[in-house]
């Protein structure tokens, strides 16, 4: 799947949250949205699965404006890791992970196998954590369940909103490694939000830098490192 932002603005009152965003995510690419807190990253992401509608401009998914999609169909084909995780508190971990397959009517044994595989992949013992409820997990564990849930029904587009934010550095590196592996094997299109420049350089095939709702840089990591834009420099200075 491809995603394209065409002259997208988002306004709340007279505040410009997104200011004429033009951006294209190609098939198989991992575009990292980098920016400070409040720069509009989450807002841009939520437009791709139609959780937010732009004030003006068009967001196209697979070449079709999101307004022309059936929102339920659109969202079922997109895996979304929300910044606040948002697991269902009344579902066990395994049922949370198997949610979209369940909605899609997969047979129970296939859901169970898939759930187990994914929990394993994000480093949670399925036998131990599967039957638990979200409130019985740590913040980092919940976040990993959120990642597993997003991947469950094999979506063709992935939206990640700071998915590794609450993790310890060791698990974080481990999940980043798995993310890269996933990308290598499946080549899924992803939009990945972070404010960690390390993570951006490591995971992105391209880095789009947002500053106060405006796209100020859009470069592959190697070129981003050499950027002379003041906002890019500000981020790169965090590297030392």
């Amino acid at each position: 799947m491809t995603v394209e932002y065409r002259d997208v603005c988002y306004r709340i009152g007279d505040r410009m949250i997104l200011d004429h965003l033009n951006l294209r995510v190609e098939e198989g690419e991992t575009l990292v949205l980098l920016g400070r807190s409040g720069s509009g990253k989450t807002t841009a992401l939520k437009m791709a699965n139609s959780l937010i509608s732009s004030t003006s401009g068009t967001v196209l998914v697979d070449g079709k404006p999101t307004t022309g999609w059936d929102p339920v169909r659109l969202r079922r084909s997109i895996g979304y890791v929300i910044q606040d995780v948002g697991l269902f508190p009344h579902y066990t971990v395994q049922r949370n992970v198997g949610l979209v397959p369940e909605l899609e009517g997969w047979p129970a044994d296939r859901i169970a196998a898939r759930t187990e595989e994914l929990l394993d992949k994000v480093g949670l013992d399925p036998g131990l954590y599967g039957p638990r409820y979200p409130r019985q997990l740590s913040g980092g564990q919940r976040q990993r369940v959120g990642v597993a849930r997003a991947l469950a029904a094999d979506p063709s587009l992935l939206l990640f909103d700071e998915p590794f934010g609450a993790l310890d550095p060791v698990t974080r590196v481990e999940l980043q490694r798995q993310f890269l592996e996933l990308r290598r094997t499946f080549g899924k299109t992803s939009l990945f939000v972070t404010h960690d420049v390390h993570e951006a350089l490591k995971l992105g095939s391209r880095i789009a830098l947002l500053s106060e709702g405006r796209l100020v840089q859009d470069l592959p990591p190697a070129e981003f490192l050499k950027s002379s834009h003041p906002e890019a420099r500000a981020f790169l200075e965090c590297l030392n």
């Binding site: 969202r75 929300i82 606040d84 909605l103």
Partner: peptide, 23 residues
């Protein structure tokens, strides 16, 4: 109901009816 739960339910592609009955 936690706003994040509602939002993730919509993002997973629950229909409004499913949001009501399942969440």
């Amino acid at each position: 109901v936690d706003a994040a739960v509602r939002e993730s339910a919509l993002a997973m592609g629950l229909s409004p009816w499913q949001l009501l009955t399942m969440v």
